[in-house]
Design a protein around this nucleic acid. Structure first.
Lengths: 210, 210
DNA sequence: TCTATTTATGAATCGTTATTCAATTTCGCA
DNA sequence: TGCGAAATTGAATAACGATTCATAAATAGA
């Protein structure tokens, strides 16, 4: 058994080496400009070896997105579950999003920047898997808004729409941060987004309040 | 003169035919998957003809973005200039954004979805022109927030950051609308975004208010 | 109408790169 | 150590598609 086990484990290690290299190369040059031999070289393998672990170039990309989303989902789930207050949950979700993507900037680039433009071109079996993971994460946000609405804390609105906009708001702030390094600490960005999304940017004293 | 003029005018017409075709093809298949002969066929010209009007494939794409942004800028500028109240300006800007992109969905796909992933790969002379136009539009938003802050209507904050997030919020709602047709009327979407961004999604009666 | 000039064409070229595969190396085992 | 199986390799293949260019069509002016 030990030998079979080790082989399997080594296989996973090699597979992972390739994924790590691919993430770097894809993020640096974009899906279309990255080439497989480049990924292989980065991972210190021969070009053909890559094809022992992945069906084709797209398969590498999908596996990468899948792994990233699974990791993100797991970490959000773990931190969010113990909380009950919707506002706290939302804040925790957001902070984790900033933390995770700041720690995985390459993944962020792939996921937010590249992914959209690839959707249309591809339709592998994995495509659906990726979409499932994406929706699962989206659903966390939508559920929190639903809870908040039910609890009378948030205005009645379509929770999916809210989750969508909340995601957009935070993604854009993250983009700014990933590309030009601005935005300040995770704490600051979290508070900023929470404040805008929950309270708005309108000043609330006296006559300017509507 | 008349002959020279006509030639020039015809040239512009042909150039525009190609741009119209390219917008359609790029939006449908993405920059990398679209091919030039496809664009030529869509425009009812031979492949080589395209190269009489554009330097290369990227040049077509850039010209498209440039034209779209110029049109958008002009229409926003025109409608916004006469207003004085920052909130009204913002609302007008947003409504125009929804109106414009809803009328030019293909352009929206190119600009929002494709553009990000192409930034890194390209660096033509036109690239800078596109970025200039982009910044010019962004500046309109940032200026409105600045005015609002100065007038004491908005919370003191970095107007650029606000403009960025405001853009993200509305883009995401637009994406939803462009891709699955949801979101309701322009009026409704505008009000939704304005309300969230200005007042937040928190319910403001009694104990739930902080 | 006829020639010169401009414009259009799409087949051929050329470069690129994903993918394959025959040859080689490594590994497990006796 | 030596044999067969499994894994690795990177050069060769094959497909694709941007760009060019020799040829043809259209046009302007005489």
């Amino acid at each position: 058994m030990s030998i079979v086990d080790r082989k399997e484990r080594d296989k996973q290690i090699r597979r992972n080496d390739i994924l790590v290299a691919a993430e770097k190369v894809f993020a640096a040059r974009g899906f279309h400009n990255a080439n497989v031999s480049e990924i292989a070289k980065e991972a210190q393998y021969g070009t053909g070896t890559v094809y022992l672990y992945f069906k084709d170039k797209e398969d590498i990309y999908r596996a990468l997105i899948l792994k990233g989303l699974d990791d993100f989902f797991a970490s959000v789930q773990e931190r969010t579950l113990s909380l009950t207050d919707p506002v706290e949950k939302l804040k925790c979700f957001l902070a984790e999003k900033f933390r995770f993507f700041e720690a995985h900037k390459d993944f962020f680039k792939l996921y937010i920047v590249e992914n959209n433009s690839l959707q249309s071109a591809f339709s592998s079996e994995r495509e659906q898997e990726c979409m499932d993971r994406h929706m699962r994460i989206f659903a966390i946000g939508a559920a929190i808004f639903q809870e908040g609405i039910d609890a009378g804390m948030f205005k009645p609105a379509d929770p999916k729409e809210l989750a969508f906009m909340f995601g957009g708001l935070s993604n854009y702030l993250m983009m700014k941060m990933v590309f030009d390094g601005s935005g300040g600490s995770i704490e600051r960005k979290t508070d900023l987004v929470m404040d805008i999304f929950l309270n708005g940017c309108r000043k609330v004293d006296g006559k300017t309040q509507v």
